[in-house]
């Protein structure tokens, strides 16, 4: 598989702040690449630089093997973008909005009509063709936003947090649609804060923060980077601090935190840990409602790599 995007040593500053710092990565044809990072990490800036909307200080960007410039109309014709904020005309119906944006790429009316109908089907908006955006719910609006960005059947699609503020049903429908697009041959760059989405749809993930790459790989590869191997969750109405201190001293325990009636015990190694905890609870007559084991999630890795301090 060839590289559809190659970003090399990309640097971009906003006055004193370095938004992108020597950022390099590639996107391979046919994959869904998850671009992860906390707020202000440089995800949207990276996409806007690739799209040639933003100037950058140093580095190079090639898309489909060519330098990306504002007048690279041949490259732009193969791109589809779904921005973070909904960008549709309130005065045009669902059908007209999709037709308008599709028409910026596809001149032939018959082809366009077919593509618009297909996009409407893909995001399940057939019943709402004649609706104006103001009459649509948040989820339907997001689906319209996606349809406007992909109706022209682009080969490379950028989806910048397309599921923000969307209910689980709509989110599921959107994610299924994105996987369909990949299956139809499109390459997708996907940014989100939802780790379960990344685990569900992304073939590869890049975690960036402060404008540079912290880690990259498949979700399994990234999980292996975590310092912990297993988490034991104990749900209990109360937990004496002396027991927590004792648990912390167990072999292979990395940390133990009791918050909101849940004790989370993280282990560096995972063998018989659940059995040992249950025995300890029984021996000390500690009442609990549930106890179970979990593998580390991408979220754990993400927090480990980017830190737990609050961002904007």
């Amino acid at each position: 598989m060839s590289n559809v995007i190659e970003v090399k040593n990309l640097t971009k500053s906003y006055k004193e702040i370095k938004a992108l710092n020597d950022l390099s990565f590639e996107v391979t044809e046919g994959e869904i690449l998850g671009l992860l990072g906390p707020n202000g990490s440089g995800k949207s800036t990276t996409i806007n630089c690739i799209l040639s909307l933003l100037k950058y200080d140093e580095g190079s960007i090639t898309v489909f093997g060519k330098d990306m410039k504002p007048d690279s109309y041949d490259i732009k014709a193969k791109l589809g973008v779904v921005f973070q904020d909904v960008a549709v005309f309130d005065e045009l119906t669902v059908y007209e909005n999709i037709d308008y944006f599709c028409g910026l790429y596809i001149k032939d009316k018959a082809t366009r009509k077919k593509y618009v109908e297909e996009a409407i089907d893909l995001v399940s908006l057939s019943e709402f063709k004649k609706f104006y955006p103001k009459k649509l719910s948040g989820g339907l609006l997001r689906r319209l936003n996606i349809a406007c960005g992909i109706a022209h059947k682009p080969k490379l699609i950028f989806l910048d947090e397309p599921t923000v503020a969307v209910d689980p049903q709509s989110r599921n429908s959107i994610l299924e649609g994105i996987m369909k697009l990949r299956d139809m041959g499109a390459t997708i760059v996907y940014t989100t804060h939802y780790m379960e989405e990344v685990e569900m749809i992304c073939d590869r993930v890049i975690i960036i923060d402060k404008g540079h790459v912290l880690a990259s790989g498949t979700t399994d590869e990234l999980k292996r980077l975590a310092k912990i191997d297993e988490k034991i969750i104990v749900e209990a109405n109360s937990f004496d601090s002396k027991y927590i201190e004792e648990i912390k001293s167990f072999k292979a325990v990395h940390s133990a935190d009791y918050k909101e009636r849940v004790l989370t015990v993280s282990y560096k190694e995972g063998a018989d840990n659940l059995v040992k905890i249950i025995e300890y609870l029984k021996k000390n007559h500690i009442k609990y409602s549930r106890v179970y084991s979990e593998r580390p999630t991408l979220n754990d890795v993400f927090l480990e790599l980017t830190g737990k301090e609050l961002r904007d």
């Binding site: 921005f83 960008a87 549709v88 960005g149």
Partner: peptide, 16 residues
């Protein structure tokens, strides 16, 4: 125009 609105951004990335 891309620097003014989201719709402008979408129009600006089109091959027009």
């Amino acid at each position: 125009l891309a620097n003014i609105s989201q719709k402008g951004k979408r129009v600006s990335v089109a091959p027009t």
